[in-house]
Design a protein around this nucleic acid. Sequence first.
DNA 1: CTGTTAGCGCTTTCAG
DNA 2: CTGAAAGCGCTAACAG
Lengths: 314, 314
Amino acid sequence: MTQKLTILDIAKLSGVGKSTVSRVLTNDPKVKPETREKVEQVIRDSGYVPSKSAQAMRGGSAKVVGIILSRLDSPSENKAVSGILEVIYQAGYDAVIMESQFSTEKTNEHLAVLQKRNVDGVIVFGFSGCDLTAIESLKHKAVVIAVDTDRISSVGYDNHGIIELAMNHFLHQGKRFVSYVGVDPSDKTTGLMRLNAYKECCQQAGIEPCYQTGQLSHESAYQLTDDVVQPETQAIVCASDTLAMGVAKRLQELGRSDIQVSGVGATDLLSFIFPNTFSIDPGYFKAGHASANLLIKQLSGQQTITHLTQQASL
Amino acid sequence: MTQKLTILDIAKLSGVGKSTVSRVLTNDPKVKPETREKVEQVIRDSGYVPSKSAQAMRGGSAKVVGIILSRLDSPSENKAVSGILEVIYQAGYDAVIMESQFSTEKTNEHLAVLQKRNVDGVIVFGFSGCDLTAIESLKHKAVVIAVDTDRISSVGYDNHGIIELAMNHFLHQGKRFVSYVGVDPSDKTTGLMRLNAYKECCQQAGIEPCYQTGQLSHESAYQLTDDVVQPETQAIVCASDTLAMGVAKRLQELGRSDIQVSGVGATDLLSFIFPNTFSIDPGYFKAGHASANLLIKQLSGQQTITHLTQQASL
DNA sequence: CTGTTAGCGCTTTCAG
DNA sequence: CTGAAAGCGCTAACAG
């Protein structure tokens, strides 16, 4: 906020031409080290700051990636965003973040704004029913998270593996009566895929499935609990930590401290409050890393459309 | 991502001069409605998108505000950011968001990057021990949240009122033994100010204070609980929901369901899990709104340095 | 009201 | 290796 120094000022100050300064700025190797040193010194002393706007306009790249997430206060998404930020910032990019609020319309509006801003690429968090057509036209300049597509790069969570991990944990303990509380299958990923994973695990283990699905809220899970609790029930696998919270709460009321509960999300709060629980980490943070790395590689042409699946862990 | 249409193409296509197109773009009133209509039509048909980079460079304003928060996964901060986003997006600005991770150094780095990007203004979430000097030089182009300064606009939370609200709630119920669990007073706002508010409330009500402070974590509060629980204790006021969670958990174990607990943060999870609790809402979302509105007014010169205090509510 | 003319600050040929 | 010159796409006087 001091002055408005331009590249020309620096050129004069260091007794070289505009272009030489520019070369220093762009790390052009064909500058005599001596000259470079001198110019860099002047830049440092003067506190000169090259204008990104001008660079963006000239060079075409604004060094910005757009991130569209559904909600800022989604714990899973903001963990992933932290991962993204870490990577892109490292690579000299900045992020402009927008909330889709689960609306395809808003998503597209945001996308339009981002294009207008000349962003280098975008990372979009998918949601159930989101329309990918607009994103697909971005081809290698986009990566989507948590949703299926062939036509564009994606980083998905291993919904099957997540549930399998929880199931196996219980199965290995010799438990045979494991119920499930999930969300409505109209939600492709958290709903349908995780439910199916549960069913398959049951089949493979030869145990009788017992499950209920509803909304993604504590209250919903709380209410559903009674329907999946039998006298013999030994554990309940939940599609998310939020759900697990509701289930554990209800179990506590029912005095069923014998029933173990698992959730998804790696919330430390869950096991803090309810001792008899654990949470599977779908790897949100790492997925953020992965998607950002993928995008950056694609932008530099080192990589084409790819599909990654984030491994879950306990 | 279709073509690279420029203002000149639009000019030719609609048979007018560059500047007329520019005037249409900038909503300059001195354009014949007829002409404007024609140009707008062409713009729409061609799918032309003006380059923000060029506009930013020329006009000086990139229509971007920078937001520096401490952590993306801080519930209070991301509620506030949602509020900010709503307002600035409405006003045609976009946001580039960065995490300071409670480091003054990172904050300053981010600030530098934002300046380089020619952002119109910044909103910074303060943290204990953050250094405001760099921000102060931004004068009317900055607003800080949750921290004290005279030299720059700020939106603060009513730390005193927050605790007072909780205390009064209990006092009105005739309770006389109200303890407090907070965070270390080395933290100015959440620590010191809230603790002082508690002490003052006690004094005014003529009751004996009983409190402990520690870290801002469930565990810390959990461990501190025993120290503030006496046989006669009727309620415990906590400096945050996180703390309240730890306290309520410990009380549950102690079988003290008679003790009411209050937190700060409006987390629905708290009262869902522990019935005998309630939470004060410091007004995070509204503070976001307020700070964004303030910044925008300042940027347009309609407002000078101002200090706002967000009212809390139950 | 509208076209013409300058640049904004920077990168990039193109000649030295 | 380095300077001069030509724009990038747009806005803002300046003349019509």
